[in-house]
Amino acid sequence: MHRFANPARFLRIANVILPWSAGLTVVLLVVGLAWSLFVSPPDYQQGESVRIMYVHVPSAWMGLFAYAVMAVASAVALIWKHPLADLSAKASAPVGAAFTFICLVTGSLWGKPMWGTYWVWDARLTSMLILLFLYLGYMALVNAFDDPGRGAKAAAILALVGVVNLPIIKFSVDWWNTLHQPASVIKMGGPAISAGMLIPLLIMGLAFKAFYVTILLVRVRTEIASAKVRAIRLTQVHG
């Protein structure tokens, strides 16, 4: 594990992956968008409005995934004090926040024509809103201290506390009566969604994941450069 926590080694690997993940993002997005907007069939109940699913559902997945990455990186940072773990957690937060925001807005735009309302305070929607606030709280906290080490530590604890929200989001639709319907793709007995819709949905999911990897690498590179700049400035002051 220590071998990968070395920033120089990380930069070498990241620079190999970056052009591929960026290219893959563009290709998957072009294919996925064309498929979901023009090729995939309308739904038997929801008609053309079902196309909102192809951005809503993958962004929900990525909102949860980015938080899981942030929480694992925070735990590694707290326990093993790896220099890259804090940076990765910090880099994951804005990406996850963006996906969660997209999920909430597109869900709202889907809810109005189908359910008859932009928003309800049911368990699924509320727990997803809390996820957005957790991201925003994390981002505020991590930058709130003059000493970046202390900010990272406080934020890492918040990230770990917020982990409890992830199973609540996932299972809220099974545990309680909600307006939001239960899971369609990841459920017992296979997806309840026809192949013509599942394939573009999965392509969009992969596109968003490739996008996440790309932006995460870019942001970790930024954090590494910032840390070096800070270190040099400190030696300038004290030297």
Binding site: D43, W115, L179, P182, A192, I193
Partner: peptide, 17 residues
């Protein structure tokens, strides 16, 4: 005073239905 529609988790094209 308000009526909201709830849909199920099944998605399919009309022909399949």
């Amino acid at each position: 005073s308000d009526v909201l529609a709830k849909h199920d988790e099944n998605y399919m094209p009309p022909e399949v239905a």
